[in-house]
């Protein structure tokens, strides 16, 4: 961050091409759309800004939202409020619930889903939902682009695997027929330093009273999210309603696993999270 004497350099590329050129020339410059992560918790009259910034406001391409029968593409710099306004009825319900839980409305007019995904030090609210929905991220650099599944966009320590000079441009979410969708966040806002929170994203598919598919992921104030496919498969194929002892066994296994996973969660939040999961699993609709 700049001190009061060092000038802040701000670039305003008017097009995607100029943005990519700038990112190659200045890979250290911070990309700024809503800036809600960079500006969080600052109460002084003047913001403390990074020494070099690239403003994404002038690039319309980064704010486009498009949909086909099978997917929805969201520009990385589209504000969360804009996503909810333009695409409300076309978003998967879990994604809508996730976005509505991100900050008060005023902040949502500035915050972006791309920014939410790219926060370096922790998994923010949107990440577990995108993870279980098999979303993909488009990274572009001058002369090339690549699509990366959200599931492999971070390494084991939670660091986002973005190359120097690359820009996150789109988030692609497949539209799948989940008939159980649920998102819940408990605890403090992730924007506060040393905050403690538990974000649960949960989807399931029930066919003829059988739990055909189940996915869930947990985010807390750790860089990596918690997701265990073996645990998910414990219940897949079971008839509904799930027997209470199966639910209890599942939750005990989850509790033990998450405690040993390095996920930063207070005992209180873990117990509340378990209660939410128990209620979800015990009340899965038969069809």
């Amino acid at each position: 961050m700049s001190d009061s004497s060092a000038p802040v350099q701000v670039h305003h590329p008017p097009s995607m091409m100029e943005l990519l050129i700038l990112c190659r020339q200045r890979p250290e410059a911070a990309l700024f759309s809503g800036g809600t992560w960079i500006l969080r918790s600052q109460r002084s009259r003047r913001f403390r800004l990074p020494e070099a910034l690239v403003s994404l406001r002038g690039i319309d391409e980064l704010r486009r939202i498009g949909r086909t029968e099978s997917r929805i593409d969201i520009g990385a710099a589209a504000s969360i409020q804009r996503i909810l306004t333009v695409a409300r009825t076309r978003l998967p319900r879990i994604l809508r619930e996730t976005l509505e839980s991100i900050a008060p409305q005023g902040i949502r007019s500035l915050a972006t889903l791309g920014g939410n995904v790219c926060v370096p030090e922790r998994s923010m609210t949107g990440f577990p939902t995108l993870h279980i929905l098999d979303a993909k991220l488009e990274f572009r650099r001058l002369g090339s682009s690549r699509w990366v599944p959200v599931t492999s966009s971070r390494d084991a320590s939670g660091t986002l695997l973005i190359q120097p000079g690359e820009v996150l441009t789109r988030i692609r979410i497949p539209l799948q027929p989940w008939n159980v969708q649920h998102f819940r966040r408990i605890g403090e806002t992730p924007f506060v330093e040393d905050s403690n929170y538990f974000s649960l994203a949960f989807v399931g598919r029930v066919q003829r009273r059988v739990l055909a598919d189940l996915r869930f992921a947990v985010a807390s104030a750790s860089p990596a999210i918690y997701r265990n496919r073996d645990l998910e498969n414990l219940l897949v194929g079971r008839r509904l309603p799930l027997p209470p002892r199966d639910v209890s066994l599942f939750l005990e296994t989850f509790d033990e696993d998450i405690a040993g996973s390095g996920t930063r969660l207070s005992g209180f939040l873990r117990s509340r999270g378990l209660a939410v999961l128990r209620r979800l699993l015990s009340n899965l609709p038969p069809d």
Partner: peptide, 25 residues
């Protein structure tokens, strides 16, 4: 902090808290 809403203005057709907008934006 962008929470109370007292500073709302319209920026590029979106209602935003002006306290959380640096002028370069």
């Amino acid at each position: 902090q962008g929470y109370c809403g007292f500073c709302l203005v319209i920026l590029n057709d979106e209602l935003v808290p002006s306290c959380m907008v640096p002028v370069f934006s």
